[in-house]
């Protein structure tokens, strides 16, 4: 089911949280709303679910206008961060609740609950209470309850935030598998870039109630539309250098880089270099500096290089090198992979 949010505005009292936001999601697509806390991603999610009223704009599921529909009537399943299972009901009763509300007969409910439980692989837990389940199992119950009504849209609000690291990995692929198998249109709200990149077809990166960039994970990583996007994605994060463009990129008095191809700029700009595109193992023009920090990570080391004008570059260097703190180095920059931003922070 295609989702179309147009000129969406949301206010809480006198504060406008989201103004004039538009978002279109293709049928069967899984999209991430990514951003720091307070950027409006959960607000957007709950506006789509119907829990928050929409103060301006419209929302369509396919051809159907659902802008003013109450949450009960929207074909939407939601998985909450704390799962929101009903503590006094068994797993089967939890999953069956939406069907009971629809007044289906007992046999039909039992059949569909069983089907759904098999799909999320908790068929053997149907008699348990939520508090007798592990975090991952609770998550599966929540998914089953959200999907049992066969909704057109699945909304996931930080579904992995309460899980430990190992379960998070497992549930990441599990949620994606379910979404693919059911072919449901899904929206994932998260502040975790790895979750967004690994689970979703597209990412909408939000900032202060606006979508800063919306594109596929690799596109967003390779060609960030702004300084903000480049800084948000990537771990370890990208290094930004202030530079002066005058035919070349001047980095202080000692260092300079040639202008990347196809870029035309002059005056002060910001140069973004990801750690994996700087180091002794690359091809390209060089930058001189001094090793100021080494953080061993096993397979590779993170090394900070401080340039003569006190700006810092971070490099990922394969383990087994013999660089030491305080050593002067002259390392290569993979120029074609660098990002240039103008004074307003937009990509050049």
């Amino acid at each position: 089911m295609q989702i179309k949010l147009q000129n969406f505005t949301k206010r809480f009292g006198d504060t406008t949280v989201i103004e004039d936001m538009s978002l279109s999601i293709a049928s069967g697509e899984m999209i991430a709303l990514l951003g720091p806390s307070g950027c409006g991603k959960s607000t957007t999610l709950f506006a789509i679910s119907g829990i928050h009223r929409i103060d301006g704009g419209s929302l369509h599921f396919g051809d159907r206008d659902v802008t003013t529909l109450p949450p009960q009537d929207r074909p939407v399943g939601v998985v909450f961060q704390n799962y929101a299972l009903y503590p006094h009901m068994s797993v089967a009763e939890n999953i069956g609740f939406p069907l009971r509300v629809q007044k289906l007969n007992t046999a039909e409910i039992k059949r569909r609950v069983g089907e759904m439980a098999e799909l999320v692989q908790i068929g053997n837990l149907l008699k348990r209470r939520p508090q007798q389940l592990s975090g991952g199992q609770q998550q599966r119950v929540a998914l089953a309850r959200a999907l049992v009504r066969k909704p057109d849209v699945l909304l996931l609000d930080e579904p992995l935030a309460n899980l430990d690291a190992k379960l998070r990995l497992e549930m990441r692929s599990e949620i994606r598998r379910l979404q693919r198998e059911t072919g449901i249109t899904a929206i994932l709200v998260t502040h975790d870039q790895i979750e967004a990149m690994s689970m979703c077809d597209r990412i909408a990166l939000m900032r202060d109630g606006q979508i800063e960039q919306i594109s596929t994970p690799s596109e967003m990583y390779e060609r960030p539309a702004s300084h903000y996007v480049a800084g948000f994605l990537g771990n370890p994060p990208i290094s930004f250098l202030k530079a002066e463009a005058n035919g070349k990129l001047m980095l202080g008095a000692e260092n300079s880089l040639p202008m990347p191809q196809g870029v035309d700029a002059s005056g002060p700009i910001t140069l973004g270099i990801r750690p994996e595109h700087f180091g002794p193992q690359h091809q390209g023009p060089t930058v001189t500096g001094r090793v100021s920090f080494i953080e061993p990570q096993g397979r590779e080391d993170l090394i900070d290089v401080t340039l003569p004008d006190n700006q810092r570059l971070r490099a990922i260097v394969p383990a087994g090198h013999d660089f030491a703190l305080g050593q002067d180095v002259n390392w290569q920059v993979d120029l074609s992979r660098t990002h240039l931003f103008n004074a307003e922070g937009n990509r050049l």
């Binding site: 829990i51 949450p71 009960q72 939407v76 909450f80 609740f97 959200a146 009504r149």
Partner: peptide
Amino acid sequence: EIEMAGVQDGA
């Protein structure tokens, strides 16, 4: 969330 989940489940 329990309340929100219930409403979303159609109740």
